[in-house]
Amino acid sequence: MSIVGEAAPAAGSNPWWPTPYRVERRVAETGDTVTLTLRAPTGTAPPAFAPGQFNMLYRFGVGEAAISIAGDPARPTELVHTVRVAGKVTESIAGAAPGETVGVRGPYGTGWPMDDLPGRDVVVVAGGLGLPPLRPALLAILARRERYGRLEVIYGARSPKDLVFYDEVQAWRRRDDLRIQVTVDAAGRDWYGDVGLVTARLPDARFEPARTSALLCGPEIMLRLTARALEQAGVPPERIFLSMERNMKCAIGLCGHCQFGPDFVCRTGPVFPYAAVRDRLDRREV
C-alpha cells in the first residue's frame, strides 16, 4: 500500500530533533551564570545566525530551554550561549562541563534590525542578562564601526557581581569609538560606577534622537521605562527595538505558549519595534 509506506523524513528535517553539540569551553560569568562555547558535530558547522536570534538548548533526560545566542557573528564555527540558572533545565545546561553534550535546535526568531543601523546613531540598553543577546549586534557594529554614527551603550545589572562579560565591558570602556555607562541597582563601597536605573543614564548618553536607532533587551519593566524615555527624548518609536521574553516552548510557532497578542514571540519576535507593541506592553496580562 503506497499510502502507508511513507519514506522516513531525511535526517535533520525534523524541527523537533536536537543536534548534539560538544561543550568546548565553560566560563563562569557570575555566581549563577556561565557562558558556554559549543562545537557542532565533526564535519559540520553551526547554522548561520542573525544577532538577536536564539536556540533551544537541550540536556539529555532533562529538557529544553530557549537561550539567546551571545557569540560573535564573525566566528561562525563557535556557538556561544550565556545561561543563568533559573530552574532544573538551565541548571543542567549551565552545569555542562567541557566535553559534555548539549543538544541544539535553531536558530529561531527575528534578530536585531542590523540593516536599519548603518548611518545612524545606535543606543544599546541592556539590563541584566539582556547583554548576551545584544553582544552579537555590538560585535557586528564594532567590526564595521565606520558605517555607524555614535554608539552609546548603557548596561544595568542588579549589583556589580552580576555583571557579565566583565572583561569585555572593561575593554569597551577603554575604546574611544563607543561610550558605555554601567549602572547597578545597589552596590557596596568597592563600586565606583553609577547606581540607579538605566533610564537615569540616558540624559548622559550622546545621540541625535531623530537619527538614532535603539536596541533594548532586559526585564520587561526596564524595556517599558526605557522605551518610553527614549521616545520622550525624540527617538522615533519605530526605531526603538525591544527583545521580548515569553514562554518559548517549541520555538517554531506550534505550541502557542509564547503568544503576545497576534504574535508568536518565537517567530515574529523576539525583537519587535516599540511602535508595534507599545499598546500591548502598556496593557496588563496580554
Binding site: 539529555f60 533526560g61 529538557g63 516552548k249 517549541c250 505550541c255
Partner: peptide, 10 residues
C-alpha cells in the same frame, strides 16, 4: 485549539 507542551520522559 492547538496549544501543546512538551515533556521529557527519561
Amino acid at each position: 485549539c492547538f496549544c501543546s507542551t512538551t515533556e521529557e520522559v527519561p
